[in-house]
């Protein structure tokens, strides 16, 4: 739909870091929050989507750049597939959590999913950086990133570095800021 930038943001990041071993990034959020749109923005135009597994109620997208691997999935549907996606937590080294700032009704659901994620044994005691994208900021009536972080009680996350930015994935606004932050985090994590 939206073509990636000539050189994907994450490619630049990887090149700059000179990473050898790939970093696993989990991109999570409720369905329709904008994950696929964001990831398409970030990935280099030549990146191959490794596999899309469209199962009823559960789908995972994976793709790799030269040094980063992305695992994207919807935290939606009713329960049955939960342990399927939790299976990926262990190998994740950074998290991008996408929120639809215009979906006020499901803000509680996003919070519930975030809390469950943060309390998962494979996440709880690790200092994984979490980047929050308060997406769809262009929609009239969308909540501000401050409001979103309030509703998600992000101030309670004490043992993990986190950052939130308002984004418009359709235009690409706000993504750069987030990626810059994540870049710094991965760098400190590596040194």
């Amino acid at each position: 739909m939206v073509a990636g930038w000539p050189m994907g943001l994450f490619d630049k990041l990887a090149a700059w870091l000179g990473l050898k071993k790939e970093v696993n990034v989990l991109c999570l959020g409720l369905d329709n929050s904008g994950k696929t749109t964001i990831i398409n923005r970030l990935k280099p135009s030549n990146a191959q989507t490794q596999d899309i597994v469209p199962t009823i109620g559960f789908s995972i997208e994976k793709f790799k750049t030269s040094s980063l691997s992305f695992t994207v999935f919807d935290m939606s549907g009713q329960g049955r597939y939960r342990n399927l996606w939790e299976h990926y937590y262990k190998e994740g080294q950074a998290i991008i959590f996408v929120i639809d700032s215009a979906d006020k009704l499901r803000m509680v659901v996003a919070k519930e999913e975030l809390d469950t994620l943060l309390n998962h044994p494979d996440i709880k005691h690790r200092r994984i950086p979490i980047l929050f994208f308060a997406n769809k900021m262009d929609v009239r009536d969308a909540l501000s990133s401050v409001k979103v972080s309030q509703l998600l009680s992000l101030e309670n996350i004490k043992d993990k570095p986190w950052h939130i930015c308002a984004t418009d994935a359709l235009k690409g606004d706000g993504l750069q800021e987030g990626v810059d932050w994540l870049q710094d985090q991965i760098k400190t994590m590596r040194t």
């Binding site: 009713q78 329960g79 979906d103 009704l105 499901r106 509680v108 659901v109």
Partner: peptide, 26 residues
């Protein structure tokens, strides 16, 4: 199903209030 959430409970009250609850996935 309300919005994109299958398990949504919508109630209105005698005084005209609107309550929306969502069934936890768990």
């Amino acid at each position: 199903r309300y919005g994109r959430e299958d398990g949504t409970l919508i109630m209105t009250t005698r005084a005209g209030g609107l309550i929306v609850k969502i069934l936890k996935r768990t």
